[in-house]
Each structure stands twice: as C-alpha cells, then as structure tokens.
Design a protein around this nucleic acid. Structure first.
Length: 558
RNA sequence: UGGGCCAUGGUGUAAUGGUAACACAGCAGAUUUUGGUUCUGUUAUUCAGGGUUCGAGUCCUUGUGGCCCAACCA
C-alpha cells in the first residue's frame, strides 16, 4: 500500500488547451468550436486520427462542438469514395460531427468575396504563365517584381473575372491573384493565387463552376463562416497563417484563428497520403484498408480498437516539436486494451503431431479452460482431449538451449488446462526431420486436480487433432525495414518483403468457426487476432493484430 | 546566404523563476497452468557559451543544430 502523499498536481495542459482556457477566461468566446477539415482525396491515417482526437477532444473537454468539413476545392483529385470512407472512419473512432459541411457549400459566398476584393483593388487577374509568375515572385532572399496586370483597374478586373467564371477561357489561361506584397519575406504573401480555371466536374457542385478557389482563399473564410474559434492545423501551415488572417481582415468577417501543432510520425511507417496512395496503386499492398497500412481503415481491419487509438492519441501528446513515435507505444496501447477484453482461444499455427501412447484410441476426455483470466465474468469453455494432438513446432526442440522450458526428448511439459506429458520418442522422416512426437501422459496430473507431484516449468497450448478445424491466418510485420522510410532516397526500396506471411492451413478451436467479422481474440501464447472480412464459405480468415510480448524470443536473440 | 517554427533520458510528453517528473522502450527480480498479465526495483534527460537572479529547463543575449516556405495541391 502506498502512503506517499503527493501534492494534488494541477492537470497539465497542452499549449492549445492553454490558449483556449486563456481565451475563455478573457471572455473572447462563449464556447469552443473546432473543425476537422480533410480533403477527400485519400483515406484517413493514424496521423489524421491524432488530429481528430485533438479537435473533437478539445470540444468535448470545453463543452463545445466540432464540425467535419470536407476541403473539396480541387475537383480533379477528389472523390465521393473518399468522402464516405472519411465519415465512416471518424464515426468508428467514436466521434459524431456537430455538422457535416463542404468547402464547396461556400463557393457562392467565396466568389462574392472575391468580387468584393477586386473592387477594393486588392485582387487582379493575371495572364502570366506559371513560370512567369514564379520568376516574378523572386526568391526568399530577393523581392519579386510586379507585372503589368497588377495595375489593371478594378472595373476591368471584375469584367475579366466574371468572364473567367462564365467559362470564356480555357484551363490555365489566367488566374485571380491577391494584391499584397511582392517584397514580403513570407513567400505566401507575394500575391498568392486565389482562383484558377479548371473545367472539371466537381463531386458535389457538378459542372456549375469552371473556376475553383485555392486553399488559402477557401479555408479561413470557411472557418469564419462556421464561426470556428480555434482552427487547428499542422506545422507546415504556419507560413499560411499571415495570409489566413489577411483574408479574414480584408473582408472584415468573424476572426477565426489558426494554431499549429506537430504532425504524427511513426517509426517503420510512412504517413503521407501521396506515399500511401502510391503503395496502393502500385500494388505493394492490397488496398487502402490492407491491414499493414497505417490508415484507419487498415488498422480497423488489422484489429485495432477505437479505444486503443484514442488512448494512443492522448499518450503521444500535442506539441510543436517534430517527433517520431516508436511503434512499440502503439503496440502497447492495443495490447493493454485487448488483454482485458479479448477472449482466449487455442490455435496452432505451425503444427507438430503428438501421439499420447497411453491414451486410448477413439476416446475423448473433456477439459475446461478459462475464456479470459483477466475477466472471471468471461466464464469457461470445454476443450476436447484425445490421443492425437497438435502442438506448435516452436514448442519442441530436439537439442534445446539452456532455460528452454518447453518439450524436448525425455522432457516434460504441461498441456495448458490438461495434463503433463513426457516426450518418449521422436518420429523422423527420411531427411531426419522430426515429424511427430510419441508421448506419455500422466492421468493424475489433470489440471485443477493434480496429485501427480510432478513439477514442470513449461506450459504449452495444444489442440485435439480429431476436433481441430482449419483456418487461414495472416501474419503481419512492419511494412518497412527502416525506422524512417520517408527519409530514404526512395522509400519503396525500404519496403519489408516479409510484411505478410499467410498460413493457409492453421488449426483452431471449433468454437472459432462461429466468430463474426471483426471479432477479436487472443490466441493463447501467440497474440491477438481478429476475423477478416474475407472469411466466408471457403473458410475463416484471421489477421494477427499484434503478437504477445515475447521475452523468450528476446532472450534468444541475445 | 530572406523569413518562420523548434530544441528536456533511447522515444514522447510534463515541470508556467524554487527538489527535473510521467509513460513507452531497456535492464534486473518476484508472481504466474499464457516465457502473457500483474508487481517491485533500476539505468538514463534540460543543445552550447555568456548574462540577469539568493535561485534558471524556464527570463535576456550570442551561437549551433533540425524542420518548414518560392504548386494554377491541401
């Protein structure tokens, strides 16, 4: 019993919570309104999960609300498939948006504001090519130079802009640019693009528009329209903040404010949508929801729980420092969650036949074993024991090293929840490989009523060969061989060729055949597994979510 | 070489001028019919120099290092 009495340490806040509490204390806002603004051009990944947990978590903590807003200003890369998956993923994580909006809901308003800006003399239509504009922008160390379009009158600009909207010009013919400061040390303030011409079909507005607003012209105003108080994004948007505020100030609208935190990086993982998309499209993984992918859909299929992902998000914290989180923390989170909840089942992945020579043929004796030692309420289940069994190949060694607790010639081991057996004889094939074991069991060593007086160090799992069913089991390993694949010259060269191992004929308890898609189990001594949606009439398929901690394997590597 | 952001154990995150802590990882041990779980112990931290102060991880200053910014992407 601990008697130490530490002072009631005040809860520590992350820097965004500090800002919010200061704003609330100052009466700046009555309540907190955040938003999660994904672009529907790919699937959400665990980095987005960090952002979702932050935005929704802040709102929950301070009695506010969070909108889901699809940032759909670029019709050529966006698709409703992604809209659907994003909404599903947000809800699966356990959050319900207060509103579901689209930046495209605001296209009319955004357009009107652009005309307003033109009439104020703060925007102009530019017919320069992208190359010309780049040259005119200068470099970070040299100021840009204005071109003739910068001096076009508001009236003429308005006329041309309206013709842009009317579809008079082809793609790329001209753009609308803000007239700010070509000498600004912030490159984003050197007359940024506001609108570009794209004769493209939009997933929501159809063919209504042939000009589309750029991110910088859409995002801050969208926040403002929704009265977002704290607009939270990642570090790379810091240079955009000045422009974000310029737009809002120029229009005199609700002053949403932007704050930036460091995105999540995970060891042995890539986290950019572009790279993830590449993995999918080039077939390095099967799909966006491949269980090896760090996408929310992939992790769900892999067997992660929403609870474990939220727990992970809180444990990694929020700060402005670049970070690279160790995968072991994620594994800890899912193991901790599943250890308490997952029912135990026996499965033998790499089978070795064991014949109990002193057990009668054709006879079955029923054992009983707990469903979850961490949860007595989970109850017990019967387990059939018979003359021929399957055990794991790893649980037998002909020439064992010191401290090997499992079965070896002449050695004894306990079959969990059943009997102690002794290995009397090995059966070998022509190549000298051990193919089966002939063992003796000790009837008086029955689990729970052991009067044998025998002591063994090892306990292994097993399955009655007569009763076992077969299933496919997919074992996953990290997708990359190096800690930071994104730092490689070519990240794909770091792909782990052994990230998937398929065991097409593993043995499992009969009870497992009734499991439904997504059900999670601990295969005793092996790891956590869940039922893959590929399961069906042709058989059950299990995905390994994560192994159990294995201090013996670690010892072996030394 | 313009501007911006950042710097605390191996990895993250706290400490809000007053004993550098928590988690993961590591190591050692106890318990265990999962080499799991649980429990105990333990290793290891303020980028560098200067300054202010009774006292600096924190404030000032000069460096150093890392990251970001010149897409008709977000």
């Amino acid at each position: 019993m601990k008697t130490e009495n530490t002072a009631p340490a005040g809860e520590s806040l992350n820097f965004i919570e500090e800002i919010i509490e200061a704003d609330l204390a100052a009466g700046k806002y009555q309540s907190v309104l955040t938003r999660f603004p994904p672009e529907p051009n790919g699937y959400l990944h665990i980095g987005h999960s960090k952002s979702i947990c932050l935005n929704f978590g802040l709102a929950q903590k301070y009695g506010g609300k969070t909108n889901l807003r699809f940032d759909d200003t670029n019709p050529v890369t966006e698709d409703t498939e992604y809209v659907d998956s994003i909404l599903e993923d947000v809800r699966w994580l356990g959050f319900e948006p207060a509103n579901i909006f689209f930046a495209s809901d605001y296209f009319d308003q955004l357009y009107d504001w652009a005309e307003e800006l033109i009439m104020k003399g703060r925007a102009y239509v530019d017919f320069s090519t992208p190359e010309e504009v780049a040259a005119q922008k200068g470099t970070p160390t040299t100021p840009g130079t204005p071109n003739k379009y910068r001096e076009t009158s508001p009236e003429e600009n308005l006329d041309i802009f309206r013709r842009m909207r009317a579809g008079e010009f082809p793609d790329g013919h001209c753009t609308l640019r803000a007239k700010i400061d070509l000498a600004s040390p912030n490159m984003h303030m050197r007359d940024p693009y506001l609108y570009r011409i794209k004769h493209a079909h939009h997933h929501r507005t159809g063919d209504k528009w042939c000009i589309y607003p750029m991110y910088d012209w859409a995002h801050g105003q969208s926040d403002s329209i929704e009265n977002i108080t704290h607009s939270i994004c990642t570090l790379e948007f810091i240079p955009h903040r000045e422009l974000y505020e310029w737009c809002i100030d120029s229009l005199g609208i609700f002053p949403s404010r932007q704050y930036e935190f460091a995105r999540l990086n995970l060891t042995y993982t890539v986290m950019s949508k572009r790279k993830l998309k590449q993995l999918v499209e080039e077939g390095h993984v099967r799909a966006w929801d491949d269980p090896r992918m760090p996408t929310i859909a992939g992790m769900r299929r892999r067997g992660f729980t929403p609870e474990s992902m939220r727990d992970f998000a809180t444990r990694i914290g929020i700060a402005k420092r670049e970070n690279l989180i160790e995968l072991s923390l994620l594994e800890f989170c899912i193991r901790e969650d599943l250890n308490k909840r997952a029912l135990r089942r026996f499965a033998v992945l790499n089978p070795m036949k064991v014949v109990i020579t002193n057990f009668p043929e054709g006879q079955t004796e029923w054992m009983e074993t707990e469903n979850n030692p961490e949860d007595p309420e989970a109850g017990k289940r019967p387990l059939p024991f018979s003359r021929e069994l399957w055990i794991e190949q790893d649980d037998f060694m002909e020439n064992p090293p010191p401290k090997y607790f499992r079965l070896s010639p002449g050695g004894m081991v306990r079959l969990k929840s059943a009997f102690i057996i002794r290995c009397d004889e090995t059966v070998k094939d022509a190549g000298g490989n051990v193919t089966a074991l002939r063992c003796t069991y000790f009837p008086e060593s029955r689990s729970g009523q052991d009067t044998s007086g025998l002591k063994v160090q090892g306990v292994i799992h097993w399955l009655s060969a007569e009763h076992a069913k077969t299933a496919e089991v997919r074992l996953y390993d990290r997708l990359f061989r190096v800690e930071d694949p994104a730092a490689e010259e070519d990240f794909k060269s770091a792909i782990n060729p052994d990230s998937l191992e398929v065991i097409s004929k593993a043995f499992v308890e009969p009870a497992l055949m009734e499991a439904g898609t997504g059900d999670r189990f601990q295969f005793t001594r092996l790891g956590y597994f869940c039922v893959d949606p590929d399961s069906g009439s042709t058989g059950m398929v299990f995905n390994r979510t994560v192994t159990l901690k294995d201090t013996w394997a670690k010892e072996q590597k030394k």
